[in-house]
Simulated scan of single mutants.
Amino acid sequence: MDVLSDVVAVTRTGRPRSAHVRWHAPWGQEFASVPGAAGFQVILQGSCWLLPPDAEPVQLVAGDVVFLPHGSGHALADSPERVVTAPACGPDGHELYDAYASDSVDRSGDGGPVTVVLCGAYQLDPSRAHPLLLTLPDLIHLPAHSGRHPELRSAVQLLAAELENPRLGTDTVVPGLLDALLLYILRIWFDEQPTRGDTTGWAAALNDPPVTAALHAIHRDPAASWTVAKLAAEAGLSRAPFARRFAMLIGQPPLGYLTWWRMTTAARLLRASNAPLRSIAAQVGYTSEFAFANAFKRTHGIAPGAYRRN
């Protein structure tokens, strides 16, 4: 798998939630902070205002996408001065898009202009949080631009159609479309980040061909007997310049990231399968179950067997 697909596959857990909501002005809706989740809002029709708690209101129009990677609280309203209502929750206390998961909801006002929003959330596992996601800002706004991001627009249209008119297979189609939406949002954001010679961080790393080549190699085959020299060869650089470049952009040396990714992959395998420890050890590059157990405990603070039982 490529780096971005791997990051999403490891970090996301459970079923994503979504709702197709139609608001009639006047209206205002608060969405409380949801730790361990990433939320999104897509304006399908009309316009509204995004009201962040510590920033100026932002006007949104049809086609705009808002992504909140860390589940930050916010509000939507038909006017920047509107007094918003408390979060709408279901019987289990979750947010509007959880209480009305996979539904089309009509929230009537006084018959004013209509705004249609596709809203939802992804559940993330904080114990497997990838630094790529941790470095994202609290709010990502992708404005609508005619002719730009056609793949994102297509995913939005398909998802909106499934939620507005559920049919046979909708329960299977929607989660796949939500995963595609998440990947498109992240891909676009990383692609659009400005890169300079002195830029560091994951946005710069994913736009740097040598470092990206090494990352893809690690994610493609974490069990391989990687050395700095072998990863440098994948990157097309000599050993020392590659090691400096990787550490500068990623924030840790190549073998440090390799070990972290191996242990993150092992944690996923321990939770998702009943494979014996020796098999999981082999899948992440350890020929000795004892060496694997020691490395896992150094990273996670608990032995693999206890991690699986817990």
Results as ranks from 00 to 15, higher is better:
Ala88Tyr: 04
Gly251Pro: 03
Gly301Cys: 08
Ala232Met: 10
Thr287Glu: 07
Gly93His: 02
Gly256Gln: 13
His300Tyr: 08
Gly71Trp: 00
Glu192Ile: 12
Gln157Val: 10
Ser154Ala: 13
Ala161Lys: 02
Glu192Trp: 11
Thr170Ala: 07
Pro241Arg: 01
Gly90Gln: 01
Trp23His: 12
Gly93Thr: 01
Ala223Pro: 09
Pro16Thr: 07
His149Val: 10
Asp78Phe: 01
Val284Pro: 01
Val174Tyr: 03
Asp191Gln: 14
His219Asn: 14
Val58Ser: 13
Val156Ser: 01
Leu158His: 11
Glu192Thr: 13
Cys89Gly: 07
Phe31Cys: 09
Leu139Phe: 02
Pro53Asn: 10
Gly251His: 04
His24Glu: 15
Asn165Tyr: 07
Thr287Phe: 05
Ala291Pro: 09
Ile250Pro: 14
Leu158Cys: 09
Arg271Thr: 04
Trp189Asp: 06
Phe292Val: 02
Ala155Val: 14
Asp125Ser: 01
Asp221Ser: 12
Gly201His: 11
Glu234Lys: 10
Gln59Ala: 15
Thr85Pro: 09
Pro209His: 06
Leu96Asn: 00
Cys119Arg: 00
Ala229Cys: 07
Glu30Ser: 15
Phe242Thr: 10
Thr172His: 14
Ala180Cys: 14
Val3Leu: 09
Pro91Asp: 06
Asp191Glu: 14
Val84Thr: 06
Ser273Gly: 05
Leu237Arg: 04
Glu192His: 11
Pro126Phe: 05
Asp98Ser: 07
Leu68Glu: 11
Thr200Tyr: 10
Arg245Met: 03
Leu96Ser: 01
Leu136Asn: 05
Glu81Thr: 06
Ala243Met: 14
Tyr100Cys: 01
Ser104Asn: 00
Glu30Gly: 15
